[in-house]
Design a protein around this nucleic acid. Structure first.
Length: 359
RNA sequence: ACUUACAUUCAAGUU
């Protein structure tokens, strides 16, 4: 039964929800854990309706079942439903509190988060770190730092949250300073720490510093993770070295869609239309699937280089060849592209055909 | 084997 449930989770995590459900239905015996796994499979893929249905049908709900539903709602911005579940659960534990807290954080309800935090009976390191993230991700770095300093216990995630918070808010020097403190206190960094440090340099924008940081993480005994490589590609580009970005990019053995997007963005930043087009084709040859970001970059590149026809080709290709839904920025690029080429009427028609409200 | 905290890629306009 444990093996079956593990299989179910594996299907869900690779996006094969339908297979997961078939698997679940065909299981000769089901435990509460398998029901919970199926509910999480639904919530993690945004199918809250189905999750709720299953939750209501399941015979023996436990604490994890209730928490999975709270989390499902918070992670998709349905705070009212999450709140209701939180109040109705007969098994409220620290996970329930933390899940709701994280929901307030993600929705930008910082005041609510703060109030909830004060009511948590025995906040743990996750509760505290969630508060650090809540403040940091809404730009309140000094509040975040205050929470960080007052935490009774810090773990690696707490350090990473604070370091990345600084980096994401263009406070690279403070990020690096905190990284040094972390080192002094003997906390071992991981890949996520390195990404935060690399991003700090990206924010500072200094090429000499980026070489130092590159050497530092290159010397580390930790093997290079694809996300660290991706961050380094961007760091070199943002620090003004397209060549550095290219060198790192080609040295990376493992590349994902983000790696390719980072390289495309580097060419776009340097107005190197030919480079971007070349990488886009190479991506296709290597069989790496483009995503919505890939097309945002390619549309912007086409617009800036006046390649109206090419841009239109990308626009249609995104949906017809790759089944990607359009985001608002794809339309923005297209309006820009058509407008620059003088097709004001078509730009206007496109705006009127959009599935969202124009901003 | 199931639930909670951290990370990498992103458009236009203005300057």
């Amino acid at each position: 039964l444990t093996a079956w449930t593990a299989m179910l989770t594996a299907y869900a995590q690779t996006g094969h929800l339908d297979l997961a459900r078939k698997f679940f239905d065909s299981m000769p015996k089901k435990s509460t854990i398998s029901w919970n796994a199926m509910i999480s499979a639904y919530t993690q893929n945004g199918h809250l309706r189905e999750a709720q249905e299953l939750f209501e049908k399941m015979p023996d709900k436990n604490m994890v079942s209730w928490n999975a539903m709270i989390t499902g709602y918070t992670q998709h911005g349905h705070m009212e439903e999450a709140r209701e579940m939180f109040h109705r659960t007969p098994y409220r534990d620290l996970v329930s509190w933390n899940a709701l807290l994280s929901g307030f954080s993600q929705s930008g309800l910082i005041t609510e988060a703060r109030k909830l935090f004060d009511r948590i009976p025995n906040p743990d390191v996750i509760s505290w770190t969630t508060m650090v993230t809540a403040f940091a991700s809404w730009g309140q770095l000094d509040e975040a730092r205050d929470v960080f300093d007052r935490m009774p216990v810090r773990n690696l995630v707490s350090w990473n949250a604070m370091i990345s918070g600084y980096s994401q808010n263009a406070r690279g020097h403070e990020a690096l300073q905190l990284y040094r403190t972390m080192d002094v206190e003997g906390v071992r960094p991981n890949e996520i720490t390195f990404v935060g440090v690399v991003d700090a340099c990206t924010a500072i924008g200094s090429l000499p510093l980026s070489r130092v940081i590159h050497a530092h993480i290159g010397d580390s005994s930790l093997s290079w993770d694809v996300t660290v490589g991706n961050a380094v590609v961007t760091m070199y580009a943002k620090c003004g070295s397209l060549h550095g970005a290219e060198l790192v990019f080609s040295s990376m053995v493992r590349k994902d869609t983000i790696t390719w997007n980072a390289m495309l963005a580097a060419y776009a930043q340097f107005s190197c239309h030919a480079g971007a087009v070349h990488v886009f084709h190479a991506m296709h040859v290597e069989g790496v699937p483009p995503d919505q970001v890939t097309f945002t970059i390619m549309l912007a590149v086409s617009s800036h280089s006046g390649e109206c026809k090419t841009g239109l080709t990308y626009f249609w290709s995104a949906r017809l060849d790759f089944g990607l839904p359009y985001r608002a920025d794809h339309y923005r690029c297209m309006v820009d592209l058509l407008g620059r080429a003088g097709y004001i009427r078509d730009a206007k028609d496109l705006v009127q055909s959009m599935p969202f409200e124009p901003d």
